[in-house]
Amino acid sequence: MDLSEHDPLIKIKNVHFSRGSKLIFDGVNMDIQRGKVTAIMGPSGTGKTTLLKLIGGQLRPSSGTIEVDGENVHRLRHKQLYQLRKKMGMLFQSGALLTDISVFGNVAFPLREHTKLPESMIRHLVLMKLQAVGLRGARDLMPAELSGGMARRVALARAIALDPMMIMYDEPFTGQDPISMGVLVRLIRLLNDVLGLSSIIVSHDVQETCAIADYVYLVSNGKVVEHGSPKQLADSDSQWSQQFMQGMADGPVPFHYAAKGYAKDLLGLEA
């Protein structure tokens, strides 16, 4: 297959998805470009994590298609899907480290599972990845001994262990102090450019994310409401982007989870 440089890595076409009776995506369209850092932003609970799980093939849309690297994720057979996932790194919001093995073991895990590299080589690779996230000294700690921010950085080291073609970051910045935040922001950009990755960042941290993103999608209420480069969004006079970029509670993006009237609720009346 001849995929040109300009062919998007991920094509999301008209995806619908619901959880029970709750509609989460109502026709989402996105193109994620190769070699770029693409940010997906939106209020909490709009389904950003869900979108990443759809891309990774862990959830199935009720309609619409998702193509990754020219393959329809939800049409693949089990084996092919697992083959594709080796090329996708994902950083979970919770870190999702294996709690019964050490930091070193966690980063070595994908290498040991998928390669036949000798132990000395694995040691080298693991230490390199840990060095990149500043946690080489923590290699013998168990995941329970890490702080939330440290756990996320270990998870990042693990996500890049297999040198994937893309990485999906779910809220990489939450729980980082200003220093590790700065390091992490630069690291994500650096990994993207040096390793020729494509990156997707899901985040609320507008400033940090916009500083490194090439392209931004704003998602709300199950739809993409705005997209463009960070500069375009900042300059845009659409209410969506103004509200989100400046972090105001009032505007078209609802801050509240759908509920009945506040006064009625407090008084215990039926809506």
Partner: peptide, 15 residues
């Protein structure tokens, strides 16, 4: 392991 997303994480590592 399921609750702490370790199983999910493994799936995404193609394990």
């Amino acid at each position: 392991m399921k609750t702490t997303e370790q199983l999910s994480g493994m799936e995404m590592m193609a394990v």
